[in-house]
Nucleic acid binder design. Structure first.
Lengths: 121, 121
DNA sequence: ATCGAATATAACTGTTAAGTTATTGTGTCA
DNA sequence: TGACACAATAACTTAACAGTTATATTCGAT
């Protein structure tokens, strides 16, 4: 007995190999978007540059928490920082985020509609 | 100073309110995509239905590990399962995944090109 | 029935990271 | 100068989760 699936399709027929490092980078990027508070901050920034204080007020999170998230987002290039006097203003640096979020939102909407169709028909 | 812990948001000026539950759901979805091994599995499934054994072989992960990831992905509706005899075949149930991944990949490509332009010009 | 292969699950471990409190640094204004 | 507001950081706690080992279950073949 040989392990059957070995002979059939090993791996050659795949689109692209996709290296482990690449997968790690992509996963990292998704991980940035996998936290509700970070999404909330990004959503706030969608309507334009905001100061840390504004973000604290609008999100309801603590100031250190917001600062930490902003730092994380900045380290990975999703937001940029502008200093003015005593204050720091943050804004979106990677607009692709909204494309991604919209795709996800649309997918959820679609699924919900399908489910309610199954129930309601 | 508002105490905003209880209610959603006290501020008016934003595009859409975006409830906390909504943010949680979106974050959850991104979290599913934030693990390299899960991305590897999904990438394998992009070329079509695969058995668990095939996925184990192609990914290099342990069998329990693959099974657990598949279970997670299925619970959240990203893959579906088909049983045939002793084996279980999994396939993509939510094609939006690839749209999302492509957007992310494109964004990384773009950034890299910009960086190499800055260096190489 | 029995053995082995395919898959799932349970229990455990280790790591990561979100949030907290406390503190530090820095600019502004009295 | 001192006092205060804004922001960042450090240290800590805790919870979530990826991966492992071990075990259970189910099917097919003998």
């Amino acid at each position: 007995m040989l392990k059957n699936s070995e002979s059939n399709n090993a791996e050659p027929s795949n689109a692209e190999p996709m290296s482990d490092e690449m997968l790690e980078l992509i996963a990292q990027r998704f991980r940035l978007l996998s936290d509700p508070m970070r999404l909330k901050i990004l959503h706030q920034l969608q309507s334009g540059e905001k100061s840390v204080t504004e973000l604290v007020e609008n999100t309801g999170a603590s100031q250190p928490n917001v600062s930490k998230h902003l730092s994380t987002l900045r380290t990975h290039g999703l937001v940029k920082r502008r200093q003015e006097g005593n204050m720091a203003f943050f804004s979106i640096a990677a607009p692709f985020i909204f494309d991604v979020c919209n795709t996800v939102c649309d997918s959820m909407k679609t699924e919900w509609e399908q489910r309610s169709n199954l129930l309601g028909s």
